[in-house]
């Protein structure tokens, strides 16, 4: 698993598609694919932070669910916005979302074979 982080609208998806080849990638937007085995393509999970929020809103456990997914799919790229670089939100849900997303990304970064941060469309390998 490879992790790609960066701020909003930094060109993360384009960076990933250019790096791995558009044809070789299957993009999922804010969702985890149910089946991955038939494609032979790299699974690209875009807007991972949106998926975390959606699972929280619907009573899921994003920490467990992403781990289960990673256990069955190693050939994937997870793309997420960095959302912790701001003022603590007023709403409790937003605070929890921000905190949990950050901690999930710390855990994914630990497991990832490679972590890159994209700034202005440029990837910086940090692990």
């Amino acid at each position: 698993m490879k992790l790609v982080l960066g701020g909003y609208a930094q060109g993360k998806l384009d960076y990933v598609l250019q790096k791995y080849g558009r044809e070789a990638c299957q993009i999922y937007d804010g969702e985890i694919p149910e089946h991955t085995e038939e494609q032979g393509k790299t699974v690209v999970m875009n807007h991972f932070h949106n998926w975390v929020k959606e699972r929280m809103k619907n009573g899921g456990c994003p920490e467990k669910e992403i781990q289960l997914f990673l256990n069955r799919c190693q050939d994937c790229v997870v793309i997420s916005d960095e959302i912790g670089n701001g003022i603590v939100p007023m709403e409790a849900f937003e605070r929890e979302y921000r905190e949990r997303t950050g901690r999930i990304l710390v855990e994914l970064a630990k497991q990832a074979e490679e972590v890159e941060r994209v700034i202005c469309g440029i990837g910086q390998r940090i692990k």
Binding site: G84, G86, V88, E99, G102, R103, V106
Partner: peptide, 10 residues
């Protein structure tokens, strides 16, 4: 230096 939930404390 880091954001919220970045793991900066640990």
């Amino acid at each position: 230096y880091g954001g919220s939930g970045s793991g900066k404390s640990a």
